[in-house]
């Protein structure tokens, strides 16, 4: 039986079933329900929820807990994620797994609490200092909020990386029926963690290296891991792309509006499809290049000025024009508006 719930609540359900044992949170609209739901369910389940004094403290509690082998998470919204930049970089430099949810809101600065997708560059390109990446998953439904939270911990442990679930205020706040997997996942003992026992005593979690050789080595290892991710975990969804002359590329809430828009356009006889990246890093470059050859145009639909469009352009290597339709400031286009804009664009 499916359960009707908010995207933000689905995150907590998925995470607990995915084996999460620790949640270090800090409230911020429109992500606060995740901390609230975490405070209830993690505590009641005998797991650990702790409200930190800041996002900065929260991400550093994650650093400690992940070092100690736990499946650990936090959730925040754009300004809070920016504040975590320091910790994200340390987590990457120390090869630590963690799961961080970003329910994006408008910016820059305090902006406001309405949805935007303007953290794309910050999150997909890294966010903190140094050469590093996060795995970035982009759910577009409440079901995927649950599914991605569930599998995020496996991915984080496997690759020893931060998995960022990049969502937005609408997907976080909306309700849909959700079904859940039948198995609770568990963390296995990690040979690199500090467990406060004899076996792990000599383990060192660190991002400092005192020779150029060691620094180069560390980044080379990270880059090799990121390259492997492009082979291993790229995910996307295509709708009506087979005979399409044009495709819309969109993620998160934008892809929901775009789905209705392409149905409307198809009904009017326009050969258009939808390509939805589910992983933003690694980005589905190969597949985009492959399908671009038969296209007349690609339209990137985002709640920002066209941040993902840059990556699409790189992916398709100028084989087809990439057009940008962007909304920001909390404006989510109506289907009617999007349909009109697409028609003018193609």
């Amino acid at each position: 039986m499916k359960k009707l719930m908010k995207g933000n609540d689905a995150i907590v359900h998925g995470a607990l079933l995915g084996g999460a044992t620790h949640f270090f949170g800090y409230p911020i609209t429109p992500a606060s329900e995740i901390a609230q739901s975490g405070a209830y369910y993690f505590t009641k389940a005998g797991r650990t929820f702790l409200q930190a004094e800041s996002e900065l403290a929260a991400v550093n509690m994650i650093l400690g807990s992940a070092s100690a082998g736990a499946r650990v998470m936090t959730a925040s919204s754009s300004p809070g994620i920016a504040l975590m930049g320091e910790g994200l970089s340390y987590l990457a430099g120390s090869n630590l797994p963690s799961v961080i949810v970003n329910i994006q809101r408008t910016g820059p600065g305090l902006g406001y609490i309405w949805p935007e997708q303007s953290d794309y560059n910050m999150v997909v390109k890294g966010g903190g200092n140094g050469i590093y990446k996060n795995i970035v998953l982009a759910p577009n439904s409440v079901q995927e909020m649950a599914d991605f939270a569930y599998k995020a911990f496996e991915l984080a442990d496997k690759y020893r990386m931060t998995v960022m679930i990049l969502s937005d205020a609408y997907i976080g706040q909306m309700m849909e029926p959700v079904s859940f997997p039948a198995k609770v996942l568990k963390s296995k003992r990690k040979d690199w963690s500090v467990y406060a026992d004899a076996e792990s005593r000599t383990n060192l979690i660190s991002s400092i290296h005192m020779t150029k050789e060691a620094l180069v080595d560390n980044v080379d290892n990270l880059l090799a891991k990121y390259k492997k991710l492009e082979e291993d975990i790229v995910e996307y969804e295509e709708t009506s792309t087979d005979d399409a002359e044009h495709i819309v590329v969109a993620f998160g809430i934008s892809s929901r509006v775009a789905l209705t828009a392409i149905r409307t356009l198809r009904a009017q006889g326009i050969k258009i499809g939808l390509f939805r990246p589910k992983t933003l890093f690694p980005f589905p470059k190969k597949r985009l290049l492959e399908i671009s050859k038969s296209l007349k145009s690609i339209i990137s639909v985002e709640l920002n000025e066209g941040q993902m469009a840059d990556d699409i352009e790189l992916a398709v290597q100028c084989s087809v024009p990439v057009k940008r339709l962007g909304w920001y400031g909390g404006v989510v286009p109506s289907v009617t508006e999007l349909v009109d804009k697409i028609k003018k664009t193609i």
Binding site: S67, E86, G87, V194, T202, N203, L204, S206
Partner: peptide, 8 residues
């Protein structure tokens, strides 16, 4: 000769 976590 113990466990260590290097912090920001």
């Amino acid at each position: 000769d113990t466990g260590h976590v290097q912090c920001p």
